[in-house]
Every structure is written in structure tokens, then in C-alpha cells.
Amino acid sequence: MQEATIARLTAINNVLVEYGLEMPSPPLKVFLEVAEKPGITHRDIVERTGIPGASVSRYVSILSNGMTWGGAGALDLVEAAPDPNNRRSQLVKPTEKGQALMKRLGEILEA
């Protein structure tokens, strides 16, 4: 691997840790899907990632203000709200903090 690539990956890892994302890849996949498609439903996340529905619900809770991850506290990177077109569904979107994280990651990748 080139030194520049390793430096970028290291920088990305450092930013993820700063935002409390010292976690395995499935929750990170969920976050990236939400960041890529704000307003995505749990069902769409399941279809796009192949992660089971119960796990997606748990990861959304961890990424929001619900469950904590390894003592890191609430991550506040996404928020879920009822879908006005389907009361049984929720729409998930990044919070301001989640958007800030994606901006920082984008800056690293573009460097």
C-alpha cells in the first residue's frame, strides 16, 4: 500500500474514534447507508446491507441517542422519526454531528 493511502486510512480511523465509532463494520455500514441516503427506512438498510432487521434496529439505536456502545455514551450520529406515509416504518437520517463526521471523512479522502 502507498504511504498516502495508509496515512488517509489512519486519519479516517482517528476521526471515527473521535466520534465514538470504535466499532465493528456492521454499525459503520448502517451509518454510511444513512449518510448516503438520508431518510432511508430500516427495511431499505436491511436490503442494501444484508444485515438482519433486528440488528439494524439495534445499530440505529446505538448510532442515535438510544443504546450506548462500549461505554462510549450516546453517539448522536443519526436520528429516526416516524414515516408520515407508513406509521409502522421509521425514516433514519444523519444528525448535524453525523453530517459533520461525513464532511471530515470526505475532506480526508479528497486530500
Rank of each mutant, 00 (worst) to 15 (best):
E47C: 01
L63I: 07
E22C: 11
E47R: 07
Y59C: 04
I40D: 01
G50D: 00
A72W: 04
S55H: 09
E3Y: 10
A100S: 13
A81K: 15
V56R: 00
P84S: 05
M67V: 10
S89A: 12
R88F: 11
S25V: 08
H42D: 02
T5P: 00
V34A: 07
L63T: 06
V30A: 02
A80V: 00
E96P: 01
P24N: 09
A100W: 04
P24C: 06
I62T: 04
N65Q: 12
A7F: 06
M23S: 06
M67Y: 15
V17T: 12
L101E: 13
G66P: 07
G39R: 15
R48Y: 01
N14K: 10
L63H: 10
I51P: 09
P27H: 07
E18K: 14
D44L: 04
M102E: 11
I108M: 11
L32E: 10
I40K: 02
R104M: 12
R48Q: 03
K97Y: 10
M1D: 10
M1K: 09
N14T: 09
V17M: 03
I12Y: 02
A72N: 05
V30K: 02
I40Y: 02
L63C: 05
R8G: 09
T10N: 06
P52M: 05
A80Y: 00
F31P: 01
E47S: 05
F31Y: 11
E79D: 11
V46N: 01
L16N: 12
I51G: 12
K97H: 10
P27D: 08
R104G: 05
T95G: 03
G70Q: 15
P26H: 03
R87V: 08
D83Q: 11
K93A: 15
I108W: 10
V60D: 05
T10R: 07
Q99A: 11
P52E: 13
L28Y: 06
A100C: 02
P52D: 15
V92D: 08
V78A: 04
S57V: 10
G73T: 03
R88E: 03
L16P: 08
R58C: 08
V60Q: 06
K93V: 07
K97V: 07
L105K: 02
V92A: 08
V34N: 04
S61I: 06
G71A: 12
A74G: 12
G73I: 03
I62L: 14
V60P: 03
N85F: 13
S57G: 09
E18C: 03
A111H: 12
H42A: 04
G70I: 01
D83R: 07
Q2C: 07
G71L: 12
A35R: 09
T41A: 02
V60M: 05
K97F: 10
G70Y: 14
G106N: 13
E22R: 14
Y19T: 03
A80D: 00
M23I: 12
E96V: 09
T5G: 02
A111T: 14
